[in-house]
Write a protein that binds this DNA or RNA. Structure first.
Lengths: 189, 189
DNA sequence: CGTCGAAACGGACCGCAGTCCGTTTGTATT
DNA sequence: AATACAAACGGACTGCGGTCCGTTTCGACG
């Protein structure tokens, strides 16, 4: 099999990198929501049309940015040190996984919001988290609809829900405790 | 204690109703995302500024619309026929509750998206659902952090998550089965 | 090295959310 | 009923996301 049908022209690739870099820089200077597409285009030295050609929409651009961080995290999960990475017992990994995911979703919450539904959890490297949890649950011999259980476990870690709770004054330690408790209850069958 | 500091002027109240009605009508004619604020204002026979004065933003308007349906549902839960309403055993009510909530979130998904974070679950009649589940869990003598458990149970019923699963081809019956299964596992302690 | 087609580019242009401020209207008071 | 003031109104205006299309550039091939 060949690669994707179109290997992408050289200037296009250069522009994409320039745009991502420009966006990242602008975002860390002012906040995510204050970065305009025009500003990104200008800083990258390209026309506005180019930005939209590459990323489709503002959400698309943010999603691309997210994707990068997400990949690093995926690497930490699949090849990093235990207990998050391989080498620890499935149960310990599951506990560590939730904690890590919780913090990740929190750290990127602004970006996640800006990425909307085009975000990491839709198409691309999509439900990596889901697959991983599912895998761990299987290893733990948890019975039942493991795929659904994975979704259900992950759901309360999502950015919007976590943020809402923090806004209501729930301390983050309690959210972590909740996660661990939830895992314990479901793993015991 | 008196009412809210400002009882709201008569014309203001009239305009609010007109706007909500206009919005509802336009939404059911074309889809939610095709309804513009100008159109709503025009149909209600008021200026655009008035719309924003009343509802703050497009999201605010959508949230107000949602709020109405949400209240009806709340009434069904608190005073309607069993098993959703009072009169059934707590366990049966909890099962019925999730199913009903799932369908509700699905039915209003477009509106929920349009209402963004200003939506029902933030400030106004806020986490009614959460309180109710918490109440039922307490009645069932489920031990632990019941407030967190309520959030965790509700999370996988949220619009975005449900829609994502449907998009992946999961049939809705499986989501319902997942809910019932989850409840069973958590209630057994 | 010259030619050619496809892909990328850029920026003028459009529609809509949201703001601003001068004007109008409702209501409390005497 | 007249007055006065706060609150509501309306629509011109701004800024940004997104589109469109004529022009430029890449790179494959002879």
């Amino acid at each position: 099999m060949a690669d994707q049908p179109a290997p992408e022209r050289a200037d296009a690739q250069r522009n994409r990198r320039a745009l991502l870099e420009a966006a990242a820089e602008l975002i860390d200077r002012c906040s995510v929501e204050n970065v305009t597409m025009d500003a990104v285009a200008q800083r990258a030295g390209v026309g506005k049309g180019t930005v939209f050609r590459r990323f489709g929409s503002r959400e698309g651009l943010m999603a691309a940015l997210l994707d990068h961080s997400e990949r690093e995290w995926q690497h930490a999960v699949m090849a990093g040190p235990p207990p998050l990475g391989p080498g620890a017992a499935p149960c310990a990994r599951l506990h560590a996984f939730g904690e890590s995911r919780l913090r990740l979703n929190l750290r990127h919450s602004a970006l996640i919001r800006a990425a909307g539904h085009t975000g990491s959890r839709s198409v691309p490297a999509a439900s990596f988290a889901q697959l991983h949890v599912r895998h761990l649950l299987t290893a733990l011999e948890v019975p039942g609809d493991v795929a659904y259980l994975a979704v259900a476990l992950l759901a309360p870690l999502e950015g919007p829900i976590v943020q809402q709770q923090l806004r209501e004054g729930v301390p983050i330690e309690r959210l972590e405790a909740g996660w661990h408790d939830l895992v314990d209850r479901l793993v015991r069958a």
